[in-house]
Write a protein that binds this DNA or RNA. Structure first.
Lengths: 725, 725
DNA sequence: TTGTCTCCCATGGGGAGACAA
DNA sequence: TTGTCTCCCCATGGGAGACAA
C-alpha cells in the first residue's frame, strides 16, 4: 500500500537572487500535491506565477525539501509588524534555540480573503537524522505573458478607465478587431481567490490608446485599490487570464485579532515550535513577502556567517522601491549586539547599521547578516552606479523637481546654510545630544521666544479665559504669517497636487486638508500608514518628522544625517516637494506625536512610550518645548498595585512633565498619558502597554479636572523597576 | 507615594440573569480607570451602555474583582467558532487544569474595527491567597433613553430611509418643530469607534411618520448592514446620542489569521494561561458575546455543580432569537461524558442533550452545566407558557402562515402521514440507522427507482456522450415535473419574497436564485452562514437539510424528531414557508455538501470529513446514493510519509467511494477529496485537515484524469491509524 | 402605525474625445 | 505614448407621497 520513500535531498549551494526576470523560468513545485499536465496543472501553474508576481521580486520563498533555519524572533516580529517592539522583548516561555533547524515539508501559496495580501503557509519539520523525505518532481513550465502597472490617479479616479501601456496590450491581450470603429472585446480573468473579473478592453481616444473600461471600476472598488498600488495581469499559453494586485509596499496590515491577544500569539509561536521539536512533528508558519527573512536556507545562512561581517564592515542590501523595483542601498555596520536580552547569541538583527544616504522607504537600523551582502571594493563602483540609477529612477517617479526655485525667504536661506554645515555630522534627535547644535538653535530662537513670550503672558494672567487666549494666539499667528502666498507641490506615490500652505490654519489643518486631497482621511493623523516628508529644491529629503509644535508654525524635520527645518508659513514664492510615504518611524520616538492634544487650558498632552528612558524623554521634551528644563515628576500615582516590587497588574498611570521658564511656574507644556502595565517584575522584565482611545480621553479629563484629579504616576517608578530587574 | 491598598473583595452570591430591562440600572465599573463625573464620565458611561446593548441581553459579562473559573477549552472553541472541532481535540502542550481559578483584574469593552463586533478584553490573574486587590467604586448612573430596531427591507433597500417607531422617535429624539411644513433636524451620534454619524430626522409621508433620511444610507453602507440586523440608538441625559449595531446572531466571523496558524493560537492560549499561573502574572483573554461562557463566576459554577444534573434530567436554556429576544428552550440530558479525551473530567460541554422541539436557531448538542437551569416540575407550566409565547412571537416575525393550503399532491400527503407516524421517534440520519424507516423508504421508492433506472440506462450505454446524457436527464425531469405551478413564500429574517419553484432547473439553480433574491450570493452554497429550512402549513419546521441529490428533484429534510420530505417540483397550488437562517450544522455531517461537484463525466465529488468513521461514511454514502453498496477503498496513496506509524506529515490523500449497481460496474457516484494531515501519531492523536479550493480542484482533475492519476489514499488507513492510537 | 412601492428630479457615473506632458 | 480633464447623456439615488398590511 505504501511506497518506499527515498531520500531526495536538495542541496543548493548558492542561492541566486530572485529576480523578476528569472521568475518565469522557475518551475519549482510549490506543493507536494499531485501535478497534472492538463487543465489543473495549468491552473496551478498560473496561480503560482500570479502569486509570485504579487509577492514581488525580493521574496525569497524557501523550497520544498530544503533545509532551513527558522528564527522565531522573526516570526514574532512579523506579528507585531514592527509596530510594537515590546512584544519582541517578551521573554519566551520555553528554553528554545534562536534558530531552529528544519526541513521544509510543504509550502502553500495563500492569499488573504479581505486584503488580497499574499502569504505562504510553510510547514516545517524540525530536522532529525532518521527522517527521509521524498518529493515529486514535475515540470509544468509554460510560456506566459504578463505585465504590471503602478496605478495612476487616472486609473483610480472617478472616471476610472485603466490605461494599458501599448506594449502590454499588444503582448498580453488577444488582438482587437481593428476594422471596427471602436474596437472592443471582453477580457475574463480570475484572481487568486478564483473570483472572475471581466473587463471591457477598448481602443479609443485621441490619440488612440488601449483601455479597460467597464468592469475596471468594480475591480478597483473590490480590491480597494489606491494610487501607487500595482495591477498584475497574466495570460497563459492557453489564453487564460489572471489578475492580481500589489498594494503599496510597507503598508502595515492590522495583525490584531479579537480572539487572541498578541502576547498569547507570541507564546503560541514559541510553544508550537517547541512542541514540534519535542514531539517530532510538523508545525505551520505563515510567511509574508513583506516581512523580514526568518526562514533562511541553511547554506545561505552559513555562507553569510562565513562572510565574517564586523563593525565598520561595508555592505549592501536590497529593498523594494515605491515602483516595486529593486533598490540597493549601502551602509556600514556600526555595532554588533543581541537584539533582545532573551535571545542571547541570536543572529536575528544583531547588526546595527548606518545607511550611507537618505531614502524614501523605511529601512531598519538593525539587520540580520543573511539580508546583506558585503560591499567589496572591486565591485564598489559598479554597485554605486546601479544604486544611483535606481535612485534616480525612483525619484523621477515622484514628479519633476523644480530646478531653480526662487529662494527669497530668510528662514529658508538659513535652513539651507545650516543643512550644509551639518551635512557630514550625525544629527539624530533622540539618544544623541541635539542641543550641541547651536546653529540650529539660533535659527529656532526668534519664533521660539515669540512663542514663549506670548505663552507666558497668557498663562500668567490667571483670570483670562483660556479658551479665548488660545484662540487669540492662533489668530495672531495666522495673521502674522499669512502675509505671503506659497505654492507647494505635494506628491503621493506618483500623484501630484498643489496646495497653498498659507491658507492652512496650523499644522493640523494642513494635515486634514492633505488627507482630504489624497483620500486618506485620518491616516496622516494616525502616522501609522503615512507620514509627511519634505524635500527641498535639491532633492534632498527630510526623513522624519519627529515632533511638531501645536500652535507654532514650524515644522521640524530630521534627516538621517542632516537636520533642516522650514517655516512653512513664511515661505513665499518658493516651492518644496512633499512626499507622503508609509513609515513606522514614530514608534522609535519616546513621545508619540499622534497622541498630542492641546486642551482648552492651553496644555499640550501627549502619550509617551512607557519604555522610554528618562534621559530619552528628557531630551525629547527639551526639544519639543524648545527651551528650558523639562522635569518629569510624579504628582500622584493612580492604579492598583499589589505584591509590591514584584507584580504590577493593570496599573493605570499617567505621567506629567512640565518645564519651568523661571522659578516654580509650571506652565506651557504638560505631557501626560495613561498606560496599562500588565506586569512588571524581575522574572518577566517587561511591560505591555495599551493606550486606547478612551484612555486618551481619560487623560483629557485629567486636564479638565487638574486640581482635583491629579492621579498621576511617576515614570521614574518605571525606571526604578527596570533597573531592579 | 504609594497608597496602602485595601482588600475589597466582591462576593456575589447569586447572579441575577442579565435582562435587558435591568441593563440601565447596572452601573458596574468596567475598568479600574479613574472615573469622572464630568464629560469623560458621561462618555464612558454612554460607551459602556451602548456596548452592552450591542452585546445583547444574554452576555454574562464578569465583573471586576470577581472570582471566576476560566475554561481554556471554551476559549479555544471561540477561536474555531465551532467550525473545526478538530482543534478542540488538539492535545494541550502543558498539563493544565480544565478550569483555572482567577480574579478578574480588568475588563475593557472593545469593538472590532472592521466588523463592529463587540468583545471584551478580560484580564485574569490566577488566584493566589496572598494577593489583595482594590477597586475604585464609582457611580455614574444617569438616565438614558434608547431603542433598538430590527432592520426591515425598507430600512436597507435602495431607498434607504429608516423608519423610526413613533414611540422611539418621541422618547429618544429631541422634539421636532412641528410648525414647519416638513419638520426636520440633524441628529449627530457617535458609534463605539467614536466615529460621528449624522442623520436627518424628518417627519413626513402620508400618513406622517418619523424617518432618518440623509446620512442613513451611508451608515448602512459603512456598517454593511443587512435585513435582520439591528440598529441601536441611545441618548444620554446631556443630549448626546450614540449609535451601534447588532449583526444577526450566529453569523460566524472569520477568525483565521494570516500571521499565525490556528494550532499555534491553540498552543498560545494554553501557554499564556500556564505561564500566568507559574509566574503569577496576568493574562488577557478576549471574550465575545456570541461565544459560549468560558469565564464563569465561581459561585455560579458551584451552584450549578450542586444542581446535580444527571442523565435524563430536564433543563431549560436561554437563546437569542432572530429578533434578538430571549427564547427559552427545554431539553433532556441524555449522556454525560468528557468533551475531549485530553481534558479528562472537564465540565466543559460534558452534558449531551436532546432538545424538546425544533428551533430556527442553531443549538449545541453538548452543553456545560452553568449554561442551563433545571426544569423543576412546579415551574414547568409557567416556563412552557413563556416558551410558547416567545416562540409564537418569533414565528410571527417571519410573516403570516397560510392557514389552509390546498394539498392535492400525493407526495405531500404521504409526507404528512409519514411525519405524523414518526413524530415521537428520534430520526437522525447520520450515526443512527436511517434505513430502519421503511415508511420513509416507501415514499422514496418511486422516484428512487425512476432515477436508478435512468441512471443505469445512461451509464451502461458506454459510448453515449455523458455530458449529453446528464443534460437529457435534467431536461426529462424538468419536463416531467414542471407540469404544475407553485407559489412559495420565502422568508429571511423577516423579509418575504415569493418564488415559483417550478421555474428552477434543479436545486442548485434554486439556491442561486434565492441567493440573488436576498443578496447573499454564495452564502447559501457555502452553508456556513445561511441555510435553508422548510416549514409546512402547520408551522412545523424542518431543521436540517443533510443531503440533497444532484439531478434529483427531491429535497430531503430531517427534523430533530421528525423526518419529512417534499417533492418541491410537484407541489401545486400550495405554499410552504422557507426560513433561511445561519447554521453550522454541516460540520456534523461526514460528507460536506458544499464540496459537492458534478463533473462532465457525471461523477459527483464531495469532500468528506477526514475524522468521519468508516461506518458513518458508509451510512452517509449509502443514503446519498439511495441504494446499493458503498465501498470506500484505496486506489493509491499519494503524499509523503516517513517514520511509519509514528509521524504522518503533510500526507495528501483522496478517498474514493463508489457503489455498484450490479457486478463490477463502478458507476454513478464518486466521492473524493483531499486533505492534509499535519500529524497523526499516538502521542498526538489527532489530525488537522485543510481542504482548500485548489485542492478541490485537484480532485476535479482526478476525475478528468481518472485512468492515469488515481493517486488516492485510503480512509481506512486513517481509521487504522486512529485505532492504533 | 409601519412597510413597501411608485413617482420624479437632480446628481453623478461612465463613455467618449481633447489636450497636454 | 500616456496622464488628466472636460463634455455629455443616461442611469441611479434619494426626496417625496400613495397605499396597503
Amino acid at each position: 500500500m505504501r511506497r518506499e520513500n527515498k531520500l531526495v535531498y536538495y542541496k543548493i549551494k548558492t542561492f541566486s537572487p530572485f529576480h523578476q526576470s528569472k521568475l518565469m523560468a522557475n518551475n519549482q513545485t510549490m506543493n507536494a500535491q499531485p501535478k497534472f499536465r492538463g487543465t489543473e496543472g495549468v491552473n496551478r501553474y498560473l496561480y503560482d506565477q500570479l502569486w509570485k508576481l504579487c509577492a514581488g521580486p525580493l521574496f525569497d520563498l524557501p523550497k520544498i525539501g530544503e533545509e532551513v533555519y527558522y528564527f522565531p524572533q522573526g516570526n514574532i516580529e512579523q506579528l507585531v509588524a514592527s509596530a510594537n517592539d515590546n512584544l519582541c522583548q517578551l521573554k519566551p516561555i520555553f528554553d528554545i534555540s534562536s534558530r531552529i533547524h528544519c526541513n521544509v515539508i510543504s509550502i502553500k501559496l495563500k492569499v488573504e480573503t479581505n486584503t488580497d495580501e499574499v502569504y505562504a503557509k510553510v510547514s516545517l519539520l524540525p530536522c532529525s537524522p532518521e527522517v527521509e523525505i521524498t518529493f515529486p518532481n514535475d515540470n509544468n513550465e509554460q510560456n506566459i505573458k504578463y505585465f504590471t502597472k503602478v496605478l495612476t490617479a487616472s486609473d483610480i479616479g472617478p472616471h476610472g478607465d485603466f490605461i494599458l501601456f501599448k506594449k502590454d496590450a499588444i503582448e498580453c491581450l488577444p488582438p482587437l478587431d481593428m476594422s471596427q470603429l471602436i474596437p472592443s472585446q471582453e477580457i475574463v480573468a480570475k484572481d487568486l481567490h478564483d473570483h472572475v473579473w471581466k473587463f471591457k478592453h477598448t481602443f479609443r481616444g485621441t490619440p488612440k490608446r488601449h483601455l479597460f473600461t467597464s468592469g475596471w471600476k468594480e475591480f478597483v472598488k473590490g480590491k480597494s485599490l489606491a494610487v501607487g498600488d500595482s495591477f498584475v495581469f497574466l495570460r497563459g499559453e492557453n489564453g487564460e487570464s489572471r489578475v492580481g494586485i500589489r498594494k503599496t509596499s510597507h503598508q502595515q496590515s492590522d495583525m490584531s485579532s479579537s480572539v487572541i491577544s498578541k502576547e498569547s500569539m507570541h507564546h503560541g509561536f514559541i510553544a508550537s515550535a517547541s512542541n514540534a521539536i519535542h514531539t517530532k512533528c510538523m508545525f505551520d508558519v505563515f510567511y509574508k513577502p513583506k516581512s523580514s527573512k526568518f526562514i533562511v536556507n541553511c547554506d545561505k545562512f552559513l555562507d553569510a556567517v562565513n562572510m565574517k561581517f564586523n563593525t565598520s564592515s561595508r555592505f549592501t542590501m536590497k529593498f523594494e522601491g515605491h515602483d516595486f523595483n529593486e533598490i540597493i542601498y549601502s551602509g556600514t555596520i556600526v555595532k554588533m549586539e543581541d537584539f533582545s536580552i532573551y535571545w542571547k547569541g541570536s543572529e536575528w538583527r544583531n547588526l546595527q547599521v548606518q545607511w550611507d544616504e537618505a531614502a524614501t522607504i523605511p529601512r531598519p537600523n538593525k539587520v540580520s547578516l543573511w539580508e546583506i551582502e558585503p560591499l567589496i571594493p572591486s565591485s564598489n563602483i559598479l554597485k554605486s552606479v546601479i544604486q544611483n540609477n535606481k535612485r534616480q529612477r525612483e525619484i523621477n517617479e515622484f514628479g519633476p523637481i523644480i530646478s531653480k526655485p526662487d529662494y527669497n525667504d530668510q528662514m529658508v536661506q538659513s535652513t539651507k546654510e545650516n543643512s550644509t554645515t551639518n551635512a557630514s555630522s550625525s544629527f539624530r534627535l533622540f539618544g544623541v545630544d541635539l542641543t550641541a547644535s547651536s546653529k540650529a538653535r539660533d535659527v529656532l530662537e526668534p519664533l521660539e521666544s515669540y512663542q514663549k513670550n506670548k505663552t507666558s503672558e497668557i498663562f500668567e494672567e490667571e483670570n483670562l479665559d483660556q479658551t479665548q487666549a488660545v484662540t487669540s494666539l492662533t489668530e495672531i499667528q495666522r495673521k502674522e504669517l499669512s502675509f505671503t502666498t506659497s505654492s507647494t507641490k505635494v506628491h503621493m506615490e506618483g500623484v501630484t497636487r498643489t496646495v497653498d500652505l498659507t491658507v492652512f490654519d496650523g499644522y493640523n489643518h494642513m494635515i486634514v486638508e492633505l488627507e482630504k486631497l489624497f483620500n486618506i482621511e485620518g491616516k496622516l493623523h494616525m502616522h501609522s500608514q503615512w507620514k509627511l516628508t519634505f524635500k527641498d529644491h535639491e532633492g534632498d529629503m527630510m526623513l522624519e518628522i519627529l515632533q511638531y509644535r501645536e500652535g507654532n508654525s514650524h515644522i521640524f524635520q530630521i534627516g538621517c544625517h542632516k537636520m533642516k527645518f522650514e517655516n512653512q508659513f513664511s515661505k513665499s514664492d518658493s516651492e518644496f516637494t512633499t512626499i507622503i510615504s508609509p513609515s513606522d518611524v514614530d514608534d522609535k520616538s519616546p513621545i508619540r506625536p499622534e497622541g498630542n492634544t492641546t486642551f482648552l487650558d492651553g496644555t499640550t498632552w501627549c502619550v509617551a512610550r512607557p519604555s522610554a528612558s528618562q534621559a530619552e524623554l528628557q531630551r525629547a521634551l527639551d526639544w519639543a518645548c524648545g527651551i528650558g528644563r523639562v522635569d518629569c515628576s510624579v504628582i500622584e500615582k493612580h492604579g492598583d498595585c499589589y505584591e509590591p516590587d514584584t507584580i504590577w497588574s493593570h496599573a493605570s498611570f499617567a505621567f506629567n512633565a512640565y518645564y519651568q521658564t523661571n522659578g516654580n511656574n509650571r506652565i506651557a507644556c504638560y505631557f501626560g498619558g495613561t498606560a496599562t502595565l500588565t506586569k512588571i517584575n524581575p522574572s518577566y522584565g517587561t511591560c505591555s502597554y495599551d493606550v486606547s482611545k478612551s484612555e486618551v480621553s481619560s487623560a483629557r479629563s485629567l486636564a479638565e479636572y487638574k486640581p482635583r484629579w491629579m492621579w498621576l504616576m511617576c515614570i521614574g517608578l518605571l525606571l526604578f523597576l527596570y533597573r531592579r530587574s
